[in-house]
Simulated assay, not measured.
Amino acid sequence: MTLTFHLDPPLTPTLHDGILTLWSDVSNAGGAVGFVPPVTPEEIRPELLKHLTAMAEGRHRLLLGLDPTGTPAATAFLSFNTHRLMTHWVWLYTVMVHPAHQGKGYGRALLAAAEDAARDFDGIDAIRLGCRGGHGLEHFYASCGYKEVGRVPGAIRVAPDDHRDDITMLLPLT
């Protein structure tokens, strides 16, 4: 079984709810996608609406991976910079693969699809992403060609006594 990737798919109510479910399932499985478990789709909805607003304004693009049943199984948002000196690279946000699909190479496929999408954008020379320390994600991203270019120790507080590094990774496209 493989995923089918779509850049900027039409966002139907069913797809919207599927992304919320994906995000909730990933978060509740311990995924580092902006929330700490337990979390409900309703708690995630305001954050998704921020992403959708940015999409409507042309600042974000959605890369969606659907499983053979048409269910969202992976996502990544590509965010364009608005600062005039930084428009040559994009941020990759909310990179996630449903826990039921992890370990099947779908994360690598998602990153490859994001790289392909970014290469098609005019004037984009690199992709940057941030990841939360403590999960080993920087090693996964490095295995996909990203290089660690920055780290802020303890910048992310997931609990009162649990601080994680904020790690910045970069993938040059040129």
Rank of each mutant, 00 (worst) to 15 (best):
residue 89 W to G: 02
residue 99 P to G: 13
residue 119 R to Q: 01
residue 126 A to L: 08
residue 114 A to H: 08
residue 111 L to W: 15
residue 88 H to W: 06
residue 89 W to Q: 12
residue 130 G to W: 00
residue 112 A to I: 09
residue 112 A to C: 12
residue 103 G to M: 05
residue 103 G to F: 00
residue 127 I to M: 06
residue 123 G to A: 08
residue 105 G to Y: 10
residue 131 C to T: 07
residue 116 D to I: 07
residue 132 R to V: 09
residue 91 W to L: 10
residue 104 K to M: 06
residue 90 V to R: 07
residue 122 D to I: 03
residue 86 M to Q: 15
residue 120 D to L: 10
residue 98 H to I: 03
residue 133 G to F: 05
residue 91 W to G: 07
residue 120 D to S: 14
residue 118 A to C: 06
residue 120 D to V: 05
residue 95 V to C: 12
residue 121 F to Y: 07
residue 112 A to E: 09
residue 111 L to K: 04
residue 107 G to N: 07
residue 87 T to E: 06
residue 100 A to P: 06
residue 91 W to H: 13
residue 129 L to S: 06
residue 90 V to K: 05
residue 131 C to V: 02
residue 118 A to K: 04
residue 87 T to K: 14
residue 121 F to G: 12
residue 127 I to C: 05
residue 130 G to C: 09
residue 124 I to D: 08
residue 86 M to F: 09
residue 104 K to G: 10
residue 100 A to G: 12
residue 93 Y to Q: 15
residue 126 A to K: 04
residue 114 A to D: 02
residue 91 W to R: 14
residue 116 D to T: 11
residue 124 I to F: 04
residue 129 L to F: 00
residue 106 Y to C: 10
residue 113 A to K: 03
residue 134 G to S: 09
residue 86 M to W: 14
residue 119 R to A: 04
residue 126 A to V: 01
residue 87 T to P: 07
residue 88 H to Q: 11
residue 112 A to L: 11
residue 91 W to D: 10
residue 121 F to T: 12
residue 113 A to M: 02
residue 125 D to P: 13
residue 93 Y to M: 15
residue 121 F to H: 04
residue 102 Q to F: 00
residue 86 M to K: 14
residue 93 Y to C: 11
residue 91 W to V: 06
residue 121 F to I: 08
residue 119 R to I: 00
residue 101 H to I: 10
residue 124 I to H: 03
residue 132 R to T: 14
residue 123 G to E: 05
residue 129 L to M: 10
residue 120 D to Q: 14
residue 107 G to A: 00
residue 128 R to Y: 11
residue 120 D to F: 13
residue 102 Q to C: 04
residue 101 H to M: 08
residue 96 M to F: 09
residue 116 D to V: 11
residue 127 I to A: 02
residue 113 A to H: 07
residue 122 D to N: 10
residue 94 T to V: 13
residue 97 V to M: 00
residue 117 A to Q: 00
residue 106 Y to D: 07
residue 89 W to H: 02
residue 133 G to V: 01
residue 107 G to P: 05
residue 109 A to P: 14
residue 112 A to V: 12
residue 108 R to L: 03
residue 115 E to K: 11
residue 134 G to R: 05
residue 133 G to K: 03
residue 87 T to I: 14
residue 120 D to G: 12
residue 104 K to Q: 15
residue 134 G to V: 01
residue 95 V to M: 11
residue 87 T to V: 15
residue 113 A to Q: 13
residue 108 R to W: 13
residue 114 A to N: 02
residue 90 V to P: 02
residue 111 L to N: 01
residue 105 G to S: 09
residue 132 R to W: 14
residue 90 V to L: 07
